[in-house]
């Protein structure tokens, strides 16, 4: 009996997992596919994944008075060159890097000492402080967005890098994650460092940080993905200056103006935006999973 039911159950499990994977992958598939096709193929839903790559006419080029023959382009080249040309996409990418890196570094700078204190130092009220951290995990960002915006506006920080970075520097999730990891670090290691003459700050940076690399990588991915892809907050605090746009804001450039949405270039932009994340994740995949499962040291 067992021998017969087990393969069935395995098959069912796999079917469910495959279905789940498909649901996650399809939007990506559509994104990449649209970034390769001509507008006509997108509208009529033809051309398979790659599209026929038949030369297409660049309507805008014709509109400004060029002869039709000069405005023929291969769709894939058209989409990607539009993505780069129409908006200063590299500038946006650079902004994205500056903002996400600053956010992550500041988060680490604050979360590690906090996590160390909450896991390894004994002081009055520690459990209460930790329960406050847990409580903060429950507050949705949107609920406090408005007060933060008003505060930033009052001190004149809207439309600056600072307004993109400062609200995110204290990550309660980071404190929580690192605290859970630090709990697994043996107390003896910290005492050994104290005997060797390290200060508490040196212990955080020279002992705890190196042992916590896997957990830190996991946190890095959560943090970087969240802030790289964030559309909501930059949209609120960056109102004028396009030089401060982050990549997701760049997507707006292709959103329906008079000549309708330009799906091809828009999807090309989206593809360019997510590629760095995918590459980094692939490189860090193994250690990322180590960090999540919190199998630190023994």
């Amino acid at each position: 009996m067992m021998g017969q039911t087990a393969p069935m159950r395995e098959a069912a499990k796999h079917a469910i997992l495959i279905l789940g994977a498909l649901i996650v992958i399809i939007p990506f598939y559509v994104m990449v596919s649209y970034s390769l096709k001509s507008p006509r193929e997108i509208e009529s839903n033809t051309g398979g994944f790659f599209g026929a790559q038949a030369p297409m006419v660049d309507e805008y080029c014709v509109k400004v008075g060029n002869p039709k023959e000069d405005c023929l382009e291969t769709p894939v080249i058209f989409n990607y060159s539009q993505a780069i040309k129409k908006a200063p996409l590299f500038r946006y990418l650079l902004n994205g890097v500056i903002v996400t890196a600053s956010i992550f570094l500041l988060q680490v700078l604050i979360a590690l000492p906090c996590a160390y204190a909450l896991s390894k130092l004994r002081f009055w009220g520690r459990e209460f402080v930790f329960s406050l951290v847990m409580f903060c995990l429950l507050i949705p960002v949107h609920a406090i967005a408005l007060p933060i915006y008003i505060m930033l506006a009052k001190i004149g920080l809207t439309n600056t890098y600072a307004s993109l970075v400062i609200p995110w520097t204290i990550s309660v999730f980071g404190i929580f994650l690192m605290r859970q990891f630090f709990m697994t670090v043996p107390d003896d290691l910290i005492d050994a460092a104290r005997m060797d003459g390290m200060s508490e700050f040196s212990i955080v940076w020279k002992v705890m940080l190196p042992t916590a690399i896997p957990a830190l990588l996991a946190f890095a991915i959560f943090s970087v993905v969240a802030h790289w892809n964030d559309y909501f907050w930059p949209r609120i605090v960056i109102t004028g200056d396009r030089d401060l746009y982050t990549p997701p804001l760049g997507l707006r450039e292709f959103q329906g103006d008079a000549d309708g949405s330009m799906w091809g270039p828009m999807m090309a932009t989206a593809t360019i935006i997510v590629t760095p994340l995918l590459v980094v994740f692939m490189l860090a995949q193994r250690r990322f999973i180590e960090g999540i499962t919190l199998t630190g040291m023994k």
């Binding site: 043996p186 003896d188 290691l189 005492d191 050994a192 460092a193 104290r194 005997m195 060797d196 003459g197 390290m198 002992v207 190196p210 042992t211 690399i213 040291m297």
Partner: peptide, 29 residues
Amino acid sequence: RASQRDLAMVFQSYALYPHLSVQQNMETP
């Protein structure tokens, strides 16, 4: 303070710095 007492301690779990080589471990103090 502990580090100023000029004492050295050997722990049951050894408590070596896992990310440093033996040489660096011994150099640290």
